[in-house]
Design a protein around this nucleic acid. Structure first.
Lengths: 225, 225
DNA sequence: CAGAATTGTGAGAAATCTGTGAGGAAATCT
DNA sequence: AGATTTCCTCACAGATTTCTCACAATTCTG
């Protein structure tokens, strides 16, 4: 469930966006000023930001410029009709898309979907999320349905290698090279054993690791075969 | 210098876009109908397409759907003001962005830049598309009319060898060398057996693999035939 | 049109591959 | 050091794929 931050001083507009976003299963945070937005950003992992250009304290462009200093989180800006130059300015500052007011909530959500899809889908910064399976590379932790699961080192590395390269098939030899190291020499079937154990640890999500018969393994989220 | 294809029946609009695109150093092609556009696409490598939704012969959505069958080239659509549902429809079909008429050429060019930056910066996953048949080399998956079809290793390799070298005829011996390996020794007729099975798996697209009598096999995709 | 060459097809045996469980070696922790 | 965890090898069973072969169907040649 992607997290959205809505930044606008107008509470009506915030609630409007909020309503539709929740319908589309977004988890929403609100901020009524630039400073509040920056605070929220620091305390929570946000996947996408809806940012109004017109705000009293600090306008959208200043805010955008400021937050681009420390995050690449995608931003969709809300502009008043006909502010063409605003759009140009915003693109240069790194906005990901624009919606002109008055806008239809459906269009906004369509653009949100498109931007998220482009920016890497569910892969947000330092956390890989696949449904109820979350992987935090830095912390080397994994959680299944919110419950932490401790994985042995090799299994974690193996999972990372596969999950980071979703859809891509790796042969046992490639996995040995990348996870065990180039100089490793040993039975390729060792990979199988670790896959087996890893699958047990993943419980309901064991199916995300697919066997590609005659070739190797791959990680695949939501795609039958 | 990126190549742009402008698809619109209105010559004034084409020239308008063209002028600004050339100022930004784009190399432009024009097409005044969907069929012309498809032809241009086949004969030249296009980086981005500007597509007007409203065209007489065949509208922009049909065109978009058709060209998405064989290319992932980014598309920006031009829509009349307020056609919100059009936008939603288009996003689903795989448009990369929208600009509503009347638009400012500068805004259009800004969006072009943004889309190219995204689609270019991101490694475009290579896939082969032939109408309803898609092949993803990395994932080693194939889909027939949107439905995934699992191919045995040899069949997938065989398909890749042929599809990657469209129009080129391979003898059985060449296929044995390239798919089975130079050192392979066995009956060349084995190839036939695999071709047969492969064709069955391809269903409606079995005809893409043509028999060249007395020589071998080739892969050939043609619009009509 | 007959005969020769080439390709399509079906079936089954042989080869290959994967899942799995167990046991011992190796590494890590306390 | 002793205990615990992790890692690796091996072998068997079951499943899948690959290969061969014989015969049918098709295409070419004269």
């Amino acid at each position: 469930m992607p997290k959205m931050l809505i930044v606008d001083d107008d509470i009506h507009l915030r609630k409007l966006v909020l309503t539709y976003a929740q319908l589309d299963n977004y988890q929403c945070q609100e901020a009524e000023s630039a400073s509040q937005a920056l605070a929220k950003l620091r305390e929570d992992e946000i996947d996408i930001i809806i940012l109004d250009v017109m705000m009293p304290e600090q306008d959208g462009f200043e805010t955008l410029a400021e937050l681009r200093k420390f995050t690449q989180t995608p931003v969709i800006m809300l502009t008043a009709r006909g502010e063409e130059y605003d759009k140009l300015l915003g693109f240069n500052l790194g906005a990901d898309d624009y919606v002109s007011k008055p806008f239809s909530p459906k269009e906004l959500m369509a653009r949100v979907g498109a931007v998220l899809k482009r920016s890497g889908g569910r892969k947000c910064k330092n956390q890989l999320i696949f449904d109820g399976l979350t992987i935090e590379p830095d912390a080397r932790t994994t959680a299944v349905d919110g419950k932490n699961v401790r994985l042995p080192p090799k299994e974690f590395d193996l999972l990372m290698q596969l999950a980071e390269n979703e859809h891509i098939v790796f042969s046992r030899e490639q996995l040995l090279d990348r996870v065990w190291g180039f100089d490793y020499l040993g039975d390729a079937r060792t990979v199988d054993t670790h896959i087996k154990s890893l699958r047990e640890h993943l419980g309901p999500y064991r199916k995300l690791i697919k066997t590609v018969w005659g070739v190797g393994y791959k990680f695949e989220y939501q795609k039958e075969n």
